[in-house]
Amino acid sequence: MSVSSQTTQTLLKSPSPRDVILLRARGHLGLLFSLSIMGTLLFLAVAAPLLSPHDPYLQDLANRLQSPVFLGGSWEHPLGTDHLGRDYLSRLLYGAQISLLIGFAAALISGLIGTTLGVLAGYFGGRVDLIVTFLINVRLAMPVVLVALALVALFGGSLLVVILVLGLLLWDRFAVVLRSATMQVRSMEYIAAGQILGTRLPRLLAKDVLPNIADSLIVIITLEMAHAIILEAALSFLGLGVQPPVPSWGLMISEGKEMLFFQPWLITIPGIALFVLVLAINMLGDGLRDVSAPEGRN
């Protein structure tokens, strides 16, 4: 057997990065755990119309504040009913739709803004970097909750407004992290090679820069999804987010806080739901970072 074919064989045998990532993912308990929770929550949200036992908006004042089944309630309302007699399980399931939608959409918008700014600043440096750094500083100086509340109050608390406001406010971390990640990638030789070969800029950014900062990007996307979900809940809790009767988890906690004394489960149930969702998203981000990090890929 000739030397060259031996080399080819070893090359063929060495697993591709994708295989390595899959192999590592299979052994990463946190990632598998968070993926299964996220999968379950996504399924529950999408299938909410099929799974919920009642209409989440249907009021039944005769049956208000029924206890959940684990506190001696009936299976008719497994998680009880709220102060207007609406089925709590149904509201919780539909609430998952709201939280996930806001998480995805807000992270998408802020990701687009922040990634563009960060990559441009990191790649071009100089004056562009100065402007982007300035924009980041301005954004960080503004109190997020206060500005978001004011904007939602001005434009009305529809789902779309909340998504847009959060998307336009939460891009700072994308910009900060991707700026420094791009700076590192920019000093690599393959970028210099691409420039010498005359690769067009958009192609260079999309094909050479972006894939190499993707692992930071994924982590920030999950962090900001979690951030957006918590902020939406906080805005709705303060009464200036998604408006009633939409079953947002933050709004459910807000409505339940009046009954804190006798019906503490009214705030515990949506609180735990929020906690589990955000925890799963954060663990997913950590797990993805672990398996996709270039170091130790072999």
């Binding site: 979690a226 918590i230 809940a233 906080a234 809790f237 303060l238 933050g250 906690i253 806080k257 804190l260 004394f261 503490p264 705030i267 515990t268 609180g271 929020l274 906690f275 955000v278 925890l279 954060n282 663990m283």
Partner: peptide, 22 residues
């Protein structure tokens, strides 16, 4: 720190009220 990231502050506050005030 993981707990802190996932727990909304308003909910944490309400739970503390429930335990220590009520």
């Amino acid at each position: 720190s993981v707990m802190g990231q996932a727990m909304p502050s308003f909910w944490f506050g309400l739970v503390l009220i429930m335990i220590f005030s009520i």
